[in-house]
Amino acid sequence: MDSKGAVANALGVSLLGFEPTEVSPRLFAMAMNTQDSLREYIRLFVRIPLITSIGPLAKMFDFVASAAPGVKEILAVGKLCWEVREKNYDIVIVDAEASGHIVAQIEAPRTLTNIVQVGLIRDQTKWMQEILHDSSRTGVVVVTTPEEMPVVETIELLDTLSAKSSVAVAAVVANRVSGDIFTDRDLPLFAALQAFAGSQQCTAQQQALLTAPLSAVEIAVDRRTHAVTHLALLAQRLRSPSIPLVVLPDVAVNQHNPRQLNEQLAAALSEELS
């Protein structure tokens, strides 16, 4: 659903379009474009290809796709469900809208069912809902980081999904979780060294060596301590009903290249799931 090319950047390709691109063997990527989606819809279902090439009418349909509220959501979700229904791919992964919008997006077919009583689109929302509401075929994966705001938002999103949506949550992924810097056994020794470095027992030369590295590592330890607290809160929420939590390491620490970062993350994910 990304219009700014973040997925293309991560996959190391130039901008993606509506037509899927094979970015690596058996991996295809596309960027959602509701105007193209509408054209495809009309071509596939209304079977009047000519209509989309008539200037003023094409403009009118472009307007429907980009401006009329709700059309964007149904066109996007409809396109995804179509790819699933036609079995064009073994799995369709969607980089979805921001968390505040996701329920409106995935429940767009149900919303339309409530407001459109007859017609082609109503019939189609039925099979879209069958796909979306079947937990063996569709699942939401909520991705978060081990910080207060993202964890609070994740918990709120899980509550909203459970209250307002029939789409199952497949997993929660906690990304960029840095590991323990020191073991529980070694941590008191690190604290003792911090105190020592500030004391008169410590020589000036030792201080020159220790002060900055200790402060730098204190930041890393502090981040880890907070991450543990927030992850514990998240894990508690995921206990009932039980939702798998996948924890991924912070591979971005020294990684500058988006594609390599993506590959490292994929390897970490593969290891975590094996």
Partner: peptide
């Protein structure tokens, strides 16, 4: 800059002294 210093200035005995002080 600090890491460019001679790191042998701080060794196990420094940590042992720190532990004792704490």
């Amino acid at each position: 800059a600090a890491l460019a210093n001679d790191r042998s200035l701080v060794g196990p005995e420094t940590l042992q002294a720190a532990a004792a002080a704490a």
